[in-house]
């Protein structure tokens, strides 16, 4: 892959992101003419401006940030487990986070306290680490990517079942809210939420970028990494913490969003024609953001005014990618 190709790939990503941001801001259940959108973005006031600035813009930015977090988390997990179909949702990490967030939400709502963003992230992080712990425990005893995935899916189901139970017993008024969230949605994101998620995700992105060197050694196997001087223990812990933190952050704000984490790294890898972390880390972040922006656009507009769950769209878009990866693996791992 030449430098030119690299530039073109990144250029494409960086060009498409503002385009989709704009599309997301422009479209929705309420039709707002282009002129008013321009005015709203320039700082005018009114109903249209409230919709654009107070609802659509934070939502679009959240989709970008959280999508990026999912893409990155998926890439880290795939590298960590040397498993091409690993991802925060498939491994049950998102579901673990979801369960903890649901517990905190329900108890906070029953005490009529408004749950703070940080509390939710903390709960999600705890849940994510718990699921991750189970997966790591399993990985110690069984080898093979399918078994690991099946274990993850099982953990996911168990956590989802408990979450449903919790939601069932929540007060009537909260059910609509909780139900939406537990299916996964970018709706209802405030500017304050966006600020909090940026505070978490951007530093994690920076740290991840800084460990791209040991990550590149790790891709050649643990034995190689140890041989060239990587502190494996520290590196593994860091990888687990970073990927869990990313997945947790997404779940806290948008509930579980499926398939982004698995599919995005593969799409980006094809686009870049390399797996070098130095390029992949930013590319997965941008790619994930783009993927979620596009998915959210579809979720909101396909059957407007009713809105689809975000996972419904991401699954339709991402699922085939996973199947393609599985088929390709079976077929001897040659790359076009």
């Amino acid at each position: 892959m030449s430098r030119k190709h690299f530039g073109a790939a990144f250029g494409l990503l960086l060009f498409l992101i503002p385009v989709f941001l704009l599309l997301n801001v422009c479209s929705g259940s309420v039709h707002i003419p282009m002129a008013e959108i321009r005015q709203a973005l320039m700082g005018a006031s009114g109903t249209s401006a409230d919709i654009v600035r107070g609802i659509r813009l934070p939502r679009a930015l959240a989709a970008l940030l959280l999508g990026g977090a999912l893409g990155l988390s998926g890439y880290l997990l795939q590298s960590f487990f040397h498993n091409p179909i690993a991802g925060p949702f498939i491994l049950g990490i998102s579901s673990g986070a979801k369960l903890f967030v649901a517990l905190v939400l329900v108890s906070a709502l029953s005490l009529s306290l408004p749950p703070a963003s940080w509390t939710l992230i903390g709960a999600a992080f705890a849940g994510a680490l718990l699921s991750m712990g189970f997966i790591l425990l399993m990985a110690r005893f069984v080898n093979g990517m399918s078994v690991l995935i099946i274990g993850g899916v099982m953990i996911g189901y168990i956590c989802s079942a408990i979450t449903d139970l919790v939601v069932t017993f929540a007060a009537d008024a909260d059910i609509v809210n909780l139900h939406n969230w537990s299916r996964g949605s970018f709706s209802g994101i405030t500017w304050q939420n966006v600020a909090v998620m940026a505070c978490v995700i951007l530093p994690v992105l920076a740290v991840t970028f800084l460990i791209s060197k040991p990550l590149s050694a790790y891709l050649l196997g643990e034995s190689h990494a140890a041989g060239v001087g990587v502190n494996l223990r520290l590196f593994r812990i860091l990888l687990v913490l970073l990927s869990s933190l990313l997945a947790a952050c997404v779940t806290a704000f948008a509930g579980p969003v499926s398939f982004v984490g698995v599919a995005v790294p593969h799409l980006v890898k094809r686009l870049l024609r390399t797996n070098q972390p130095l390029a992949m880390i930013p590319a997965c972040f941008f790619g994930g953001g783009l993927f979620c922006l596009a998915s959210d656009l579809l979720a909101r507009t396909l059957f407007a005014p009713s809105e689809l769950a975000i996972s419904a769209v991401t699954a339709v878009l991402g699922g085939p990618v996973v199947i393609a990866v599985l088929l390709r693996r079976k077929g001897g791992g040659r790359y076009a």
């Binding site: 040397h82 091409p84 891709l219 050649l220 196997g221 643990e222 034995s223 190689h224 041989g227 060239v228 890898k269 024609r273 390399t274 797996n275 070098q276 791992g333 790359y335």
Partner: peptide, 14 residues
Amino acid sequence: MASLFTDSIRPELM
């Protein structure tokens, strides 16, 4: 010191 063990590696797109 450099070492090479028998673990097979499958780096993608490298």
